[in-house]
């Protein structure tokens, strides 16, 4: 019994240590960011690998989410005779919530796990150590461009998801189910506020981008340098990032859309 409590204490202390390490790591990364201005090539390469390569899954998911929303939204609204408001339902759901959150979850799974694995592998094959011995700070050269790329990519991907989703809803609602074209857009434009909805969605995706990328690069950097260690780091990335996104989403939603 006592041993169990001690175990709990030990694990708690180690969690705090990890948290501390993660924060110091973040600070070092941020310090390394200005150096990227001199070497934009590094950032561009990472934007490609983190952002562009995520486009396919984001666009396809956005399309399907929007289409399903169109379908389900129609089914529910038609009972109230309010199917003309489909545009509003689809747009608000996507712009406020589904856009930032689903994009962040997909990003964590696709780009986050890739980042963690790549960095963990570099650690396991002593590439990071090698850089250190060559007097090149691996945090500045390897981590910082990836972090910035994730932070920049996330809101762009979320915006693309949202736009594609709304058109997906349009395709199903107006194209297939007969909702009035004008009503779809005009009611939407009436109800969706640039600042309260669109901007808040962008802010959410910026926060998610920061957190998901931070978790991914840290787990990779902190991984045990064996193949098992890297695999565990990748899993942890996806799980922690997903939980963080959902938890933060609740907090942000309460702050932004509550009273």
């Amino acid at each position: 019994m006592l041993e169990w409590i001690r175990q709990l204490g030990r694990s708690g202390i180690s969690q705090f240590e990890t948290l501390g390490r993660a924060n110091l790591f973040l600070l070092k990364t941020l310090v390394g960011l200005p150096g990227l201005l001199r070497r934009p090539g590094l950032l561009v390469t990472q934007l490609w690998s983190v952002g562009v390569l995520s486009l396919l899954i984001i666009v396809v998911s956005g399309l399907f989410v929007g289409m399903v929303l169109g379908l389900q939204g129609y089914n529910t609204l038609v009972d109230f005779g309010a199917e003309e408001s489909l545009g509003v339902a689809v747009a608000l759901s996507i712009v406020r919530e589904l856009g930032p959150v689903v994009t962040a979850l997909l990003f964590a799974g696709r780009a986050g796990s890739a980042l963690a694995a790549e960095i963990g592998l570099m650690k396991a094959t002593e590439q990071l150590s090698g850089m250190e011995m060559m007097a090149v700070d691996p945090i500045h050269r390897v981590i910082a461009p990836r972090f910035l790329a994730g932070f920049i990519s996330m809101p762009l991907l979320a915006a693309i998801f949202s736009a594609v989703g709304i058109y997906g809803g349009y395709f199903v609602g107006v194209g297939l189910l007969g909702v009035d074209d004008g009503a779809y857009w005009s009611q939407m434009q009436d109800k969706v506020d640039l600042f309260d909805d669109v901007l808040n969605g962008v802010i959410k995706s910026l926060v998610f981008g920061w957190v998901v990328t931070w978790i991914a690069v840290f787990e990779g950097y902190d991984a045990v340098p064996t193949s098992e260690g890297v695999s565990r780091a990748t899993t942890r990335t996806v799980v922690y990032a997903a939980l963080a996104v959902l938890g933060l989403d609740f907090v942000l939603t309460a702050l932004m859309f509550g009273d």
Binding site: T125, E126, Q127
Partner: peptide
């Protein structure tokens, strides 16, 4: 390094 540690 033992493995060379070249940047892959």
């Amino acid at each position: 390094f033992q493995s060379g540690a070249l940047l892959t």
